[in-house]
Nucleic acid binder design. Structure first.
Lengths: 336, 336
DNA sequence: AAGATGATGGTTAGCGGTAACTTTCGAGCA
DNA sequence: TGCTCGAAAGTTACCGCTAACCATCATCTT
């Protein structure tokens, strides 16, 4: 009895070809040692010959496992997320899991939509950037019964697994480095102002408050970061607060843009103005002077996520918890 | 009869709750106008109350359509791909399609694996970066019966839809711009050396050959591009070919790294050395001087991909073809 | 008033796999 | 020789959903 004419090759086609039942073919693929060698070889030959593509939708439906994990990231062009992705992917691949990616564009609504989609495909785990989600998304996640990782920032109330670093402490530490070098008028320059940027800014404020200094010189925008924007915003800040001695930019891109603007204005860094960024991307070492920054352990975060996820997928239970992987303040040459 | 205790909420649970059959619930979701208003409202209430997550794996299995499209990209951190992604996503979302992303790390083997995975999930379309694939991948794609887009570069033998630009012509045009400005010793600096980098290099060679000039000053590496690497490689080139007048870097990151290195060496750009990159990313306008580059219509490429894909998904047939969206050479200030 | 019509909802049969149990059969052992 | 046992393959049922067809009933026709 022929299968639907148009359709793709199924297990049944392979089975017919070899003269066995489809469960045997299924086993030859998933548990080869359970099928005798000669038969297995004939099955493999038939698979190659007919060009069989396993239907994961069907497999996931029947077994409840898909051997894939979804990672939802706010931005594709931000190197922060690509480092984390690499760490996760490397760990998962070794265990036979595929990493699927979704792009949220910093929108928790879009995140919700993707959570729904990927859970609907039956992914075995989910990694989210950040700890803020829609109410509906949290409900979905709780009911889903799969391990969920929230990453980058830390939260006292993790949904499940939380791996990251204390963004506020990092912002504070960097600001205190400025203070330790004698700077007093330290501004904050922020773009996008997603939750992590807000936390860093809170750290900046806390450090200044603790030192009894003004937190007035603060310029933020919801626009996405770019080199151009960093330059423009630095211009605005200098115009508005000419006595500014140092600027903490909420990420490296903005800081680099600010540095380029200083170069155009022939404003010496760090003598006339000190600068710092956040993340420790490639560019901070390329500029002259190298930029001060907070180096975040992104690769390591990805690796730890993969480890924790695999442990859970292997059946190891654990209760919600946070892991703080720390950070490192680096002075570069832009704080002097 | 109770459903499995542990499991998630299914259509049947909603149906039981409301007192109808599951097909009615299914219709309420997919074709609301086919279900009477009062009943629909009761169904919607039950869905909200019980927290139903549709199982797309099952839906895709039963219907053969998943309302999702996969995009496979070589690198997450490269802004080139994020621009394309944005263009595609915007177009697809309006039509109710989800864009799923896979990361190949410039490996066609990994690409093959992801093609297999996503086809196995029943995606309705596939967008690939580049035109080179494994033999097995091409076989899978041909059999899959879904629209396939190859993008960025052009090929005389597209699998299906091909949208991009002529990388060789672009490399040649940029090199000819150097020549038009009187430069004679024009080097090529390339990293990663994926297929597109090779095509650009071929354009550089062709332009120099046509002008009867030497193609000796060429330095390439399989390492991934970075600012640091651009600086280091420029150093090597200057050491080896001190008389070099201009360098065509195979992308903007390398060019920026090279420019930073020139600044460190107090080598005036473009007076002592001219530089150019490729792609037209944000950074080329941020540096001093702005970098010469080839601006590629990435966003537009993404939009056109979405258009073509949607036309095909709506049933409009078409035979394999290529679309050339062109490019624009921009001199910045680094060619003088 | 009888049949045609359209709106609404139900029935049946799968999509392509896998889990769990069962059958078959030859080897090993007392 | 009779029995147990394990390896190898088969049977059955079902995962959650949708296509295609069918049943029902109020509303129109003429």
């Amino acid at each position: 009895m022929p299968r639907r004419a148009s359709g793709r090759v199924t297990l049944q086609d392979i089975a017919d070809r070899v003269g066995v039942t489809k469960i045997t073919v299924s086993r030859a693929l998933r548990e080869p040692q359970r099928v005798s060698l000669p038969l297995r070889q004939r099955i493999e030959a038939a698979i190659a010959e007919l060009g069989y593509i396993p239907n994961h939708a069907a497999g996931a439906l029947a077994s409840g496992r898909s051997h894939s994990v979804a990672l939802l990231i706010p931005s594709l062009s931000n190197a922060v997320f690509s480092d984390i992705q690499r760490g996760i992917e490397e760990g998962l691949r070794a265990a036979g899991y595929q990493l699927l990616i979704g792009h949220t564009g910093y929108s928790i609504l879009e995140e919700e939509r993707l959570i729904d989609t990927y859970l609907g495909y039956g992914v075995d785990g989910l990694v989210l950037s950040g700890t803020r989600h829609t109410e509906h998304a949290e409900r979905l996640l709780r009911r889903a019964g799969v391990p969920v990782v929230e990453t980058l920032e830390l939260t006292p109330t993790p949904l499940d697994i939380n791996v990251g670093l204390d963004q506020t402490a990092a912002g504070r530490a960097l600001t205190e480095t400025f203070l330790a070098h004698g700077y007093r008028r330290v501004g904050f320059l922020g773009a996008r102002m997603d939750h992590r940027a807000q936390l860093r800014m809170a750290g900046w404020e806390a450090a200044l408050r603790a030192a009894g200094l003004s937190t007035e010189s603060c310029l933020t925008t919801p626009q996405p970061s770019s080199y151009r924007l960093g330059g423009e915003m630095l211009g605005s800040m200098l115009e508005r607060w000419p006595a500014l001695e140092a600027v903490f930019c909420c990420n490296d891109d903005l800081a680099a843009g600010a540095l380029f603007e200083c170069q155009r204005r022939r404003l010496a860094v760090p003598d006339a103005l000190a600068l710092a960024g956040f993340n420790g991307l490639d560019i901070v070492e390329a500029t002259t002077p190298p930029l001060a920054t907070v180096v975040t352990p992104r690769r390591r975060i990805g690796e730890v996520i993969a480890e924790r996820l695999l442990a859970r997928l292997a059946g190891q239970p654990c209760r919600p918890h946070s892991e703080d992987l720390g950070f490192e303040v680096r002075c570069g040459g832009s704080i002097g």
